[in-house]
Design a binder for these strands. Structure first.
Length: 98
DNA sequence: AGGGTGACCCGCT
DNA sequence: CAGCGGGCCACCC
């Protein structure tokens, strides 16, 4: 599995939508990649990759909870509603690759 | 080279 | 419904 694929996929997330680590992992062929996905995003974390659009499967933002509220605001600006770290209408904004 | 960690997910208790 | 354990992969000592 190449982390490059993770970035490519992440970049393809439409504005106003989000996806989960699990979705990306599944799109790459194996759900078990989920941890590696998070690791890859964490490592690179550059602007070209909208990692703020990648959240956990339960609808929480995951890695941003503490400190990076700005990213949550970005999501808000993109039309995603968030209530105390949780995404509202999660199923509606969730982007699937398959 | 090998073990520990993580922005995780699933299934069983 | 909450908690625990196992498993997946990449990265960093």
């Amino acid at each position: 599995m190449e982390s490059k694929q993770v970035y490519e996929l992440t970049k393809k997330i439409p504005k106003g939508r989000v996806t989960t680590y699990g979705e990306i992992a599944r799109a790459l062929g194996n759900l078990g990649y989920s941890r590696a996905v998070g690791n890859a995003l964490k490592k690179n974390d550059n602007k070209a990759v909208p990692c703020h659009r990648v959240v956990r499967s339960d609808g929480t933002v995951g890695g941003f909870r503490n400190g990076a509220k700005k990213k949550i605001e970005i999501l808000r600006k993109e039309g995603i509603q968030i209530k105390s770290g949780k995404i509202l209408n999660f199923n509606r904004v969730l982007h699937k690759f398959h």
